[in-house]
Design a protein around this nucleic acid. Structure first.
Lengths: 187, 187
DNA sequence: ACCTGAACACCGTTCAAGT
DNA sequence: ACCTGAACACCGTTCAAGT
């Protein structure tokens, strides 16, 4: 079991990297193969086709950018602090969201759409629970969670078009606080 | 000058439709050509290459989904009413945003990135002015405009993953009002 | 069990030749 | 001036043949 032959995960990781860098279109078997020291023919021993590779990459992304982040907040009990911590993670690290943005436009592939729905439900649910814990009613918590999550996705996108329009890492805490103030204000 | 030969706009319109439907990847010269009753060879009489076609489509989109909407609100003087009207346009019509979403992941093409930046500035600027008209200070107006616009883009995306999570057309007014309340609340 | 290399399909691009 | 059709490049996919 020495590392002589390629593991499917090697392909998946390389695909995820390519996707974050240049979008779904950048996941090219022919380009990836030499990077991994293999031929494109050998790829088809590990995967049925290109979309299976993309799916494997999406699963890695799901784990790293949804489950792992939610897990890291498991021991934060206060709901407001939970939101503040979450916001200052997701609105800051500029590499977060690259894959989100890449997947958004890949709505022609049903498996990707399904994964996006899964991730959306998980993320919005997590935020909703925090708002509910803050005392907002069910519908109001859901609505505000949708605002927060929609805003996250939207800002990921805006950052691509105009990097200046979104908070720099050093003002992340202030951004998170300001957003939290607006989203928890009652008119 | 009868409609014997194809006008570049015919290609651009067809490309925009394809893009809204299936993303940038769906803009295929080979597929579009028979639709327009032409050969793919003839395409290259009108356009330098495929990316020039995509750019022409983007320009149509810029006019239809940014300038035209802003123009339609020119005679609404009250800033709050302006925002309310804007929100109930952009958060309702489900066909709005299809192209936004398609372009978002096409960050490999500099011309598209440039167009997105132009549109972002125009849209955020318009919303910012309305918030400023409402009495918010410059920085605060800018920040809230970014929230509103980020939310628009984000919800376009969420709608793709989970159509149920976003307001249906019939509750559009209520959604616009609710959002406006949150975004104008002061904590 | 895993990989190579040649073959083919699909679509972007070019261009000589037609009207 | 505008279009056709054949040619070629690029990359996904298959598969017989190698180790």
């Amino acid at each position: 079991m020495a590392r002589d032959s390629l593991h499917p995960d090697d392909w998946a990781r390389a695909a995820l990297e390519a996707m974050a860098e240049g979008g779904v279109a950048a996941v090219k078997v022919e380009t990836l193969a030499p990077t991994l020291g293999a031929t494109k023919g050998s790829f088809y021993w590990h995967f049925a086709d290109r979309s299976a590779l993309i799916l494997a990459a999406v699963e890695l992304w799901e784990e790293a950018e949804t489950e792992a982040i939610i897990d890291s907040l498991a021991d934060v009990d206060d709901p407001r602090e939970r939101l503040r911590r979450l916001f200052s993670i997701i609105f800051v690290r500029p590499e977060l969201g690259s894959v989100d943005a890449a997947l958004i436009a890949a709505h022609d592939q049903p498996a990707i759409v399904e994964a996006l729905r899964r991730v959306t439900d998980r993320r919005v649910g997590f935020i909703r629970d925090a708002f509910a814990g803050l005392g907002f009613g069910e519908a109001d918590a859901e609505r505000r969670a949708l605002y927060a999550y929609g805003l996250y996705l939207g800002l990921v996108v805006v950052r691509r078009a105009n990097a200046d329009a979104v908070p720099a890492p050093d003002s992340a805490e202030a951004f998170a606080d300001g957003l939290l103030d607006v989203l928890t204000a009652v008119s």
